[in-house]
Nucleic acid binder design. Structure first.
Lengths: 155, 155
DNA sequence: GGCTCCCTACTCGGATAGTTGCTGTCCGAGTATGACTGG
DNA sequence: CCAGTCATACTCGGACAGCAACTATCCGAGTAGGGAGCC
């Protein structure tokens, strides 16, 4: 099980956009250059964030991305779902029904015990992600880093 | 992010092995036939469980797999780690250090805030997995299912 | 001088190849069983 | 009748293809801005 690298990029880029001046949108190319990331692929991730309603994009000259809502209203869960999708990591294929007596002895109304146990763990994971906002992460970043980003994005 | 399908197989097969008669080991082919799974690939998963010390294998005629320890001593975390590996799903690549001023402003001793937040969520997930044993799952399976499996494995 | 129109350049957006890891498969090494042979 | 030996068949174990998803990339649609031309 491996989370897409785009999630890390997405979180960092949301913070970078928050640190940029508010008066104008931040182009994807600028973000890519700042974090030394491949620009076209980063663009793809930012598009996903836009579709999820986390970012707002404006095309044309002086266009780019800006936050659709403040940092404290964006949870890590939002970002992860935007990039990775909403499907659960564990997907029960109901192999208990494939047993010789499966369809006779198993009550389809009762969910698979394995599935329930996995979902319980995944719920704890999601709950923890939903409990942390980008503002929380922002608060634990050293001010010098934020100041450095701001100057690089002001230009 | 998607968990390997082998995890589901592994948990169900551990239960199946537990339900089989204790006097002899259960061959992988028998398990595969019972759950309608591809035998060679299931064998691969069982090998992983053996390497992790969850199962014990005996080659030769009347050989097969049996539990290396009782159900209550096997957690879901054990099974997931055996199949998926121990690497965390989120792997921080420290892109914060790739910024122009990154190596100057970021203190390498302070961990990445994004990484810490993700690890916190993943820890909650692992904690929940470690808190559930196969005995717990076994307890919530209908007795008829267990009886059916036992007869099919006794033969 | 001011307004309108057009052209340019810039940006996002989705459609298109490359690569890694999971899925599925196969055959060889090793061993307990059972039969056979000799005492 | 019993013990030793051998052949056999069965099982796990690791090495080998196929496929899907992630990674990386490109080019086209759309738009704001600036300049030229006209009134």
């Amino acid at each position: 099980m491996r989370m897409s690298e785009g999630v890390e990029w997405a979180v960092h880029c949301c913070l970078g956009i928050a640190w940029a001046p508010d008066d104008r949108a931040l182009p994807a190319a600028r973000l890519a250059a700042y974090y030394s990331l491949p620009a076209p692929y980063l663009n793809k991730q930012l598009q996903a964030l836009t579709r999820a309603g986390i970012l707002a994009s404006t095309p044309g000259p002086r266009g780019g991305f800006r936050l659709a809502r403040p940092l404290h209203a964006i949870t890590l869960m939002d970002v992860v779902c935007a990039i990775e999708g909403t499907d659960p990591a564990f997907r029960c294929t109901e192999i208990r029904l494939n047993t010789p007596e499966g369809r006779a002895t198993v009550d389809p109304g009762v969910p698979c015990a394995v599935d329930r146990a996995m979902n319980r763990a995944e719920l704890a994971w999601r709950r923890e992600l939903a409990g942390q906002t980008l503002a929380d992460i922002h608060a634990s970043v050293h001010p010098d880093v934020i100041a450095g980003a701001r100057t690089h994005f002001t230009d």
